[in-house]
């Protein structure tokens, strides 16, 4: 992290690494699979996600959609693709 910081990575750099199509989606989290790795939270381009404050039986706090951000998902699916645990996915809202 120290090295990353020294290269002045800021929260402003949370651009997706390629351009998503502008859609809207609903995020689903399978909490029992989530290991609180934070990949989805950290790399969601719209900062839709956060870590919840409750624990799963395995002792992790699963990711969840921030209150008030439910409509902000652009269905880029980066969270779904980057999740190493198949714990999060997006259902695209029908246009």
């Amino acid at each position: 992290m120290a090295i990353a910081n020294s290269l002045q990575t800021s929260h402003g750099s949370r651009a997706p690494i390629d351009k998503p199509t502008r859609h809207h989606g609903t995020v689903h989290v399978i909490e029992l699979r989530c290991k609180e790795c934070n990949f989805c939270v950290q790399f969601c381009p719209e900062e839709v996600l956060e870590i919840s404050d409750h624990y799963t039986p395995r002792g992790y706090r699963p990711a969840r959609v921030k209150t008030g951000k439910e409509g902000d998902c652009i269905a880029c699916r980066f969270c779904e693709h980057v999740c190493p645990d198949y714990a999060i996915y997006v259902v695209e809202d029908s246009p």
């Binding site: 992290m1 090295i3 990353a4 290269l7 990575t9 790795c37 990949f39 939270v41 950290q42």
Partner: peptide, 14 residues
Amino acid sequence: IGSGVEEMEYYQAL
């Protein structure tokens, strides 16, 4: 380097 997400940030930076 830190946690998984920090290692991802390390990649992102480099």
